[in-house]
């Protein structure tokens, strides 16, 4: 089976050095025999980037009709991503305008996953900034700050144009907005692939990736990922505590299994991710691994433990969700549980 296409977003204001970075990245990837496709979306700079990038012999598609993350244009953007899924590429870069709010990406990614049956894997976002214009944009452009917040890697380009103190102030600002992102300082968008955590750490946690894709960054204070999602830990007990329903209803493991599956199905409708174990009987448990609507539940023989944990990642915008999960668990499964 074909490997998943790694999908990477590139943001940054006009003139920051996005296209140069892209060209550098692609040249470096070609050396590793890795092929990439590109979708370019620049506000009002028709064709220039596209022509420039085609020099590196890569599939380039231009989308110039406004910001691709604008809700009314998502359809076109989606079609383009899907059209790339048939091509022999390992990476798909989306170079997006400095005026695009990356938080609009989550709906599109969900739909892409649904339609391409998981042919893409979102690996993260790179934000290219230029040291000389950084502070101005930080002060004036809300989207600039949102792009920094959203990204895994922030490139500070053109560092030769500022003095040391200015560069330090820029780093401080970035850290205030996004303490977890990798910061790379450079000139001429020159980079070494091995510098990118995103590239070298092949298996960045699923949770982080999902976290990036969800939620409103302005919603809650706290650590970067916690701002975007809520993680609910359900600790279930293997018949140690009193069941909430009568013994008769739980008379056999099959009944219990059905109930748990039904619970997971319901839960998958409102969560991004569910992962963990639920005790079934004396010596078996269910291993749950769901992403979005894709449900994967396997029965496993294991040594019994006292408690089992199920991690559920939900949108933290919806404050009622946690309550809803508790209710669903009790109504459907009928086993005592604790929530953290």
């Amino acid at each position: 089976m074909k490997n998943k296409i790694k999908f990477c977003l590139l943001t940054g204001f006009l003139g920051a050095g996005k296209t140069t970075l892209l060209k550098n990245l692609i040249n470096a990837l070609i050396k590793d025999n890795i092929r990439a496709g590109i979708i370019v979306n620049e506000f009002g700079k028709v064709s220039i980037d596209g022509i420039f990038l085609s020099e590196v012999h890569t599939d380039v598609v231009e989308l110039n009709n406004g910001s691709i993350f604008c809700k009314c244009l998502s359809g076109t953007f989606l079609d383009q991503i899907i059209s790339f899924s048939d091509k022999p590429i390992d990476y798909l870069f989306v170079e997006s305008t400095g005026l695009a709010d990356p938080y609009g990406l989550s709906d599109i990614i969900t739909e892409v996953e649904k339609r391409t049956k998981g042919q893409y894997e979102f690996v993260g976002a790179i934000c290219v900034t230029a040291a000389d214009t950084f502070m101005k944009l930080h002060k004036k452009l809300a989207t600039f700050n949102r792009q920094i917040k959203f990204s895994n890697v922030i490139l500070i380009n053109k560092i030769d144009k500022v003095v040391e103190d200015e560069l330090e102030s820029i780093k401080t600002v970035i850290r205030e907005i996004n303490k977890d992102a990798q910061i790379i300082c450079t000139t001429y968008s020159s980079i070494d692939l091995s510098e990118f955590n995103m590239y070298t750490e092949k298996d960045k946690s699923e949770q982080e990736k999902l976290a990036i894709l969800s939620g409103d960054p302005d919603a809650v204070e706290g650590s970067e990922f916690n701002k975007r999602v809520e993680t609910v830990l359900i600790r279930t007990f293997n018949d140690k505590a009193e069941p909430l329903v009568t013994a008769e209803m739980m008379r056999n493991d099959e009944e219990k299994e059905l109930r748990i599956k039904s619970f997971i199905e319901k839960l998958s409708e409102i969560s991004f991710r569910i992962k963990g174990f639920v005790a079934l009987g004396e010596d078996s448990s269910l291993v749950v691994n769901c992403t979005g609507n894709e449900i994967n539940i396997v029965k496993q023989i294991i040594t019994p433990r006292v408690s089992y944990e199920l991690v559920v990642i939900v949108d933290n915008d919806d404050k009622t969700l946690k309550h809803e999960i508790v209710e669903k668990w009790e109504n459907i499964v009928g086993i005592y549980a604790e929530f953290e």
Binding site: G44, V46, N64, N65, G66, C72, L73
Partner: peptide, 8 residues
Amino acid sequence: ENPPSVAT
């Protein structure tokens, strides 16, 4: 399939 956009 979209409204026009400003190019220049």
